[in-house]
Amino acid sequence: MARTPLSLRDEDRALARRDDPDLRDLLPAVEPERTVTDWGRSERVEGFFDRTLYDFYYHLWFRCEVEGVEHVPSDGGALLVSNHSGALPPDAPMIAKAIKEEHPRPRPLHLTMEHFFKGYPGLSMLLPKIGGVPAHPANVHRLLYDERQLVLVFPEGRKGTEKLYKERYRLRRFGRGGFVEAAMRARVPIVPIAVVGAEESQPIFAHVKALQRLTGLIYFPITPTFPHFGLLAAGLYLPAKFKIRFLPPVRTDDMGDEPWEDQALVQTVAHDIRATIQEELLDMLGKRRSVWFG
């Protein structure tokens, strides 16, 4: 019998070792009586949001226009990568809704979010129920590789939503390429997405550091509706025209044996994807006649 040493291994190595396919068959079976998944996603709550808020914003308020939704694979895991903006970003639910409405085989989309939300009362209860998953590499790997799901990441992270109105549509650094590594390990394609409109729907004019500390939020922005409308501002957006463009997927399973070990390659791929999205954004903006009517 092969002896597995008890010493705790490096998590990264463990991820790679864990890839033997037989473990995938050992995932817990779905219990039909339950309406909540093991991630805490609730059919009921999500369905309610989908029928009311998302429907309203998608069709009436933002009048979303979607291109290239066929680039999202119909089965198997895929990592969706998008630009990120808006104080309380509307782009994530709109992308999820776009797949639901336009895709021939709609599938649930898992939205990665900061660990911060897991510790914030209220949000920690709500966000997992509508598809939020804390952005831990192990979570992303399990979703992509073991459960073969769609995962949406915003590599800009907080830096994307924090940026002020005057910096709109200029992509921030794409983290440290962690998302590329995740896709490589799971051997799933990366689908870049360019979203236009989210920047104007909830522009940030300034940040108030003192109030941020006081409230314990990750930032305290001044937007057209916040803070004077208080918590209501979370649902108040300007009716900018949304355009969502799905770009051709980037394969990661043909990059060699253990491409994630090659930091240079990871950085290059991350940079290429960032450049593609930036170019696409500029192209879409160049053709846009009006912020409100597209």
Binding site: R9, A14, D38, P134, H136, A138
Partner: peptide
């Protein structure tokens, strides 16, 4: 903890 993975595996610290 707040920044735990959703599913702990044996190798994780």
């Amino acid at each position: 903890e707040q920044d735990d993975p959703a599913f702990f595996r044996e190798e994780m610290r």
